[in-house]
Design a binder for these strands. Structure first.
Lengths: 250, 250
DNA sequence: GCGATCAGCGGCACG
DNA sequence: CGTGCCGTTGATCGC
């Protein structure tokens, strides 16, 4: 297929909201929030029906250049070959330009798909499950509210212990790191200020980095190890236990 | 092309480290760090030469299911159609299974590409540029070290002001948020502890969220607005000015 | 619209 | 390997 035909194919695919796949030798330039350039090589261009625009190399998961849904897509022939470009004004003015010097393959597809991915084991879901299992953390701990909106951020679980103290619980679906401790610290601080009382903070996560645990202890926050299991189509909390003073284990 | 031929094509492409593109009607299941399922629809499957495995719907930028480089890829025919699966042991045992009931297109490509993307305007680059422009923040501020490794994290710029006080500078290429303030706070705290002296902290970013600025001021950290420009092939700092007490502007 | 956070985040660099 | 953090992060949800 020559460049003229290819350009026509791209423009037709875009105007008909079809998905287009092109493979060939190209250079790619981007300018917007950042700028980038890559010289000639074989790549895959994927343009989706909503205008999402992706340039992939033959390795790695991530696209080397891209433009989000809603991009304005144009194609034209220039002396160097076929140019396919995508640009948008928001979030900022930016654009990609892919210049093919050789096209190995180009085709448009009319993809019918109204299904949505269902995911199990998200933090939200684990948090909801945990609402009913707070007794695993300690007796007398009762849930007050989940997804409680704070002026800044959202508290995963707000609870009350047997002494009627407020407890802020932050759930992580993967290892907790320094940022998680900082985050919980902010929530505990804000709630304490609002309610003008002492507030406890608990991190619940499958693991925690040593420095994060150290920081948590220093800040008076607690950590509980969360043991959970995901399968299709559900997630389940298997256990929950206090783990502190990791050095003491040895 | 029938399923048997397609399965053979996939296995051959994988064994030869080629890149494979398939388009067709399929269901996709994933189980591993989380679990997911999506019922039948038209999607694009992209398998790269390094084993990266991506399933795309016809909208949005992100793949709905994926597996990183190094995944073990297999293909076989079952009563329901063609199964293409990708699995790996690390970081955890996990796998995707794509079952095609209809194949619209399938082809392998031998992509030659040894080029690497060059990006301009990264935080690292802006930070390096700023090293020479510290006087724009305040007279007498001199750079000591860039990318200074701390026990936890890396300080973008460590500097010294005219009073010989240490100054930790955190550069952000986009709007600074609460997490950036927390991050800088951790650094300032650690440096102050190490050197046993008062340490200043400055956030340099193109903008800052109101709550982040508030928290910064409360924590004794400063904010400077960074005005920069990116183009191909470079980035440039255009200006730098103190912005505080935003409410006072009105 | 901005703000804050999650994500199966991915990728990178450093210890 | 883990730890930390950047990313043109993207995507979602609440204000």
């Amino acid at each position: 297929m020559d460049f003229e035909q290819a350009a026509a194919l791209v423009n037709r695919a875009v105007s008909q909201n079809k998905t287009l796949i092109a493979v060939g030798k190209c250079v790619v330039k981007y300018e917007g929030r950042a700028a980038s350039k890559i010289s000639e090589g074989d790549r895959v261009l994927l343009i989706k029906s909503d205008g999402a625009f992706l340039v992939h190399q033959s390795t790695k998961m991530t696209a080397i250049n891209y433009q989000g849904p809603g991009a304005l897509i144009e194609s034209k022939v220039v002396p160097e070959g076929l140019v396919v470009s995508a640009s948008r004004r928001k979030p900022v003015k930016e654009g990609i330009e892919v210049t093919f010097s050789k096209i190995d393959f180009i085709q448009s597809f009319d993809l019918k798909d109204d299904k949505k991915l269902k995911v199990f084991g998200s933090e939200r879901q684990l948090s909801n499950l945990l609402m009913d299992d707070l007794h695993l953390i300690e007796p007398g701990l009762t849930p007050l509210k989940s997804e409680s909106p704070l002026s800044k951020g959202v508290i995963d679980i707000l609870a009350e212990d047997k002494n009627k103290s407020l407890v802020v619980i932050e759930v992580k679906r993967r290892s907790a790191h320094l940022d998680a401790v900082s985050q919980l610290g902010r929530y505990v601080k804000e709630v304490g200020k609002r309610k003008n009382c002492k507030v406890r903070g608990i991190i619940v996560a499958p693991s925690i980095s040593p420095s994060a645990l150290k920081m948590a202890e220093k800040d008076g926050l607690e950590y509980f190890k969360l043991d959970f299991e995901v399968s299709n189509p559900s997630a389940k909390i298997k256990g929950l236990q206090k783990k502190q003073k990791i050095l003491g284990e040895y």
